[in-house]
Computed example of a mutant assay.
Amino acid sequence: MTTDSDLFQDALGELGDVRPLAQERKVALKKGDASSKVNQRARRAAATEEPASELNPLAGEFVQPVDPWDPLEFKRDGVQNGVYRNLRLGKYQVDARLDLHRHTVEMARRAVFEFVRDCLEADVRCALITHGKGEGRKHPALLKSCVNAWLPQLPEVLAFHSAQKQHGGLGATYVLLRKSERKRQDNLERHQRRR
């Protein structure tokens, strides 16, 4: 009896030189499409056995536990209070999303690192990471606690805050990222022309 797998292998053999497609490492920015593509890429990266990057600075040892009902909040020096308030109130457009549900801690660590790096390459300024509250678990709020510990370790992260109810509430976090070098250069040129 011939299976679908056998038919597929026969078809590949007839084609000759078959290679997997190269994958881009950028966040897709098409409206309505961005979050699903980022999630798929992050899950693929997290599910692979190879390390996402040997340069991943996120510490994976001890993480200070956070209560499932505690809001997450962080702001680097130099971030204006008005900018942080707008982030906290969910006033910025979320251009990329990462869902960490069903991730192990190590998968989540890799996924968060890759996600922030991809967002920076794609000039995403505001992203949303959904980690869940972790209520009623053996280790409550484990991924939430990890996200709270990891994000300040990344210099690209300027600020973060627990999301508004419509974006996941205490089970999700808005992340404000610094501008990429390309965006920074564009702004510099735009402001110099005005003078």
Rank of each mutant, 00 (worst) to 15 (best):
T2M: 09
T3V: 06
D4M: 10
F8T: 11
Q9G: 07
D10K: 10
D10R: 12
E14R: 15
G16L: 08
P20I: 01
P20F: 06
Q23E: 09
E24A: 13
R25T: 08
A28Q: 15
A28L: 14
K30Q: 15
K31C: 10
A34P: 00
S36F: 13
V38S: 15
V38E: 05
N39W: 05
R41N: 09
R41S: 11
A47K: 10
P51V: 06
E54D: 14
N56M: 01
P57E: 04
L58T: 04
A59K: 11
E61A: 09
V63K: 00
P65Y: 06
W69E: 14
P71N: 04
K75A: 13
R76P: 12
R76W: 05
N81S: 14
V83W: 07
R85N: 13
R85C: 09
N86L: 09
R88H: 11
L89D: 14
Y92H: 15
Q93S: 14
Q93C: 09
V94R: 03
A96E: 09
L100T: 04
L100M: 03
L100Y: 01
V105L: 12
V105E: 06
E106H: 12
E106V: 08
A108S: 07
R109I: 03
R110E: 05
A111C: 07
F113P: 04
F113S: 02
E114I: 04
E114G: 01
C119Y: 03
E121K: 12
A122S: 15
V124Y: 02
R125Q: 12
K133T: 11
E135F: 03
R137I: 03
K138L: 08
H139D: 08
L143N: 01
L143F: 03
L143R: 00
K144S: 00
L151C: 05
L151N: 02
L151E: 02
Q153F: 00
V157W: 05
V157F: 02
L158G: 02
F160T: 00
S162N: 06
A163Q: 04
Q164L: 12
H167Y: 06
H167Q: 07
G171P: 05
A172N: 04
V175F: 10
R178F: 08
R182G: 09
R182P: 02
K183G: 08
K183E: 15
R184P: 01
R184G: 07
Q185M: 12
N187E: 15
R190Y: 13
R190M: 11
Q192I: 07
Q192M: 14
